[in-house]
Write a protein that binds this DNA or RNA. Structure first.
Lengths: 209, 209, 209, 209
DNA sequence: GATTAATCGAGACGGTACGTCTTGTCTTAGG
DNA sequence: CCTAAGACAAGACGTACCGTCTCGATTAATC
């Protein structure tokens, strides 16, 4: 007899849930994550604090779900999500195109504050971090894995290359620049990343290949 | 309405400063960053709260300085800091070696908690983030830039390659895996990164090169 | 904007009502009045909260009715209620006897907690206080008035004495000792009260009587 | 290691203490005891909640001290408090006079709400009740005991009468009428009480006296 | 016996206050 | 003047209840 029985989800107020999502996202955008409080979210959503604590264990989880919801919505708005990177036969062009879309999204102010906040919280709060990675990051990365695998089968990528590692060559640099402000983000930059990642930076081919 | 005159640093208590660094680092290691409080640091350091607020604007800044201090100490202990990546003439080998050292440091428990905490806080607290990047990250990255530039002059790296971008091909993937737990970290992994980054993942050379 | 139509009392669940009374009384006895909550009563009674709010305006009213019910029951158990103080012709003896019964009741643990709670709430919540006085206290006091009036007619009590005030001479001291713990309660004590009230404490008769 | 060390009383803010007393008394007067909250007191006093919780365990204790302070002040204002019931040699007159003063005080609106609230809380919260009785009620009652004892030595009161019980004959009825609204309060009423208590209500002297 | 309308147990809801914790400022005493 | 200590105003935390509301599921009186 340690923990409360879980609440009855069938009786949950849809209106409140949406109001909470909206309040959480707008507050994070306006005052930043650390100054966004559960009380503030409840007040702006016109909701009792208990209604938040009933369904989420912390403000980080509220924000995570709110962001997932926002992503889902944005995906729907953007037409039937392809859920795949296009395959025109030209790997470099395809990767450049999809990275340009990612750049656009990273610079969209609706996404910036909450996703940065979630990423930050995820670094320090491991369960949340795992959920963030599992639910948001990995599905995206898997698309790259799929496209690279297809390229590998088509002979465009060297056999033996681990696609899960390969994708990090262009995704991680972009992620780090964005997260840590270690450099500017642009189409040129991502195009360059694709170029370098595909053909390497060395002037000579590897000795034993 | 001017801001307070700065306190007289010549009369500052060295003992307190060191006790505060130690308390901050140990608390972050023990209870995590969010549950580390200024009061807790003051109590463990046997110091008045005002002594902290007099010299640092926030707990993040305390931790940043504490961590810088720790890094300086660790560097000294590790013998006279080379402050350069070795240049044996074999770029791949040199990069692999230095990345292996980085792996060792990332897995050192003394460093893990505070540096992860600082990275997280830096994402969301821009001034701190810039300081973190400027004082800790950039100097490290510059070493890579220098080594790559030397390789470029030696003809090992293609002319026209932007070394600042090139270094991200092996540094950022490692950073992301470590920060966001998106994958395991090992010597094999970093070796592979160097391999891919130097020679690319494509099976064919670029069309117009 | 009229108030709700009153609920249909004919369809009321007798079982629930009794369960609520029992739960209210036992909770007040166990955890005290302030920590007795409507939610707690509902939970212990196995009843929805609305079933309480449908029939009573507040927890104080629940407790008042529960206590009235308990009193009624106790009266029935104690044989056919006399509803009068016996009149043996000896006023002192009759008063002593009935006060001894009152002492017994005040010390009965079933009654103590709820009646003290009701008295307390009544001090601060005037409507409830009036109801408490009207329904519980006054009927009891009236018995004294009747007995004293009879004694007055029999010449045992001085003509001109206001019986409503006279009864307070032995009832109020007992009530105050019990309510405010200002002294112990015993048969000796109430016997003494009767003695003093009947014959006064002065050594001389009044100057002008 | 169970409880906090007590705070350092020498550094206590006198201004805050007085503001808290004033806020507590005015709130109880305006909205009644149950709707007076610690938060409300803190807000009106311009004080942090912790400053209240640091020095008092509950709102009842705040109110008790506030009331004690008010009583002390009122006593000082009323000239050098005699701290004794006058002894003119005429016991009945002296008692009537002091009871009339009590009537005045009971009807003073500054005192009514808080003292009724404290009495109520004391019924149900035994430690507070004992403190209320010890610090406020008993000192008052002792004055009666002293005056009655003097009268007894002067032969005005029958030897053998227990003065502690005797005083209740006129004090308790007044207290009960006031607390429980069981009847009106007036000079006539208290005069009558003294009359009855001194000379009894019986028409005949006791059989064995 | 089926219909129907209100009560029932249950519990989610918008709120308020609780008592605790921490922040960053201010005050006091001591060196 | 810096220091250790800690009281202070402020305000968020997460919990407990309040009194209202909305669900099916009884359930009792009418058809």
């Amino acid at each position: 007899m340690v923990s409360k029985p879980p609440p009855d989800a069938t009786r949950r107020s849809e209106k409140s849930r949406r109001a909470i999502y909206a309040a959480a996202l707008s507050l994070v955008g306006e005052v930043g994550y650390p100054r966004t409080t559960v009380e503030g979210i409840a007040a702006r959503a016109g909701v009792g604090k208990q209604t938040i604590y009933r369904w989420w264990p912390s403000k980080a989880d509220v924000l995570l779900e709110a962001f997932l919801d926002l992503s889902r919505q944005a995906a729907q708005e953007a037409g039937q999500e392809p859920y795949a990177i296009p395959d025109t036969g030209d790997l470099a062009a395809d990767l450049k195109a999809v990275l340009r879309l990612t750049v656009d999204q990273l610079l969209d102010p609706r996404f910036e504050a909450p996703s940065r906040a979630l990423a930050a919280e995820g670094l320090v709060n491991e369960p949340l971090g795992r959920e963030f990675v599992t639910k948001l990051l990995e599905p995206q990365l898997q698309l790259y894995v799929d496209r690279l695998r297809a390229a590998q089968e088509a002979g465009e990528v060297r056999a033996g290359v681990d696609c899960r590692i390969a994708l990090e060559l262009f995704v991680s640099p972009l992620a780090q620049r964005w997260l840590q402000h270690t450099g500017p983000i642009s189409y040129d930059y991502t195009d360059t990343l694709v170029e370098y990642a595909l053909h390497g930076i060395a002037s000579q081919p590897p000795r034993s290949a």
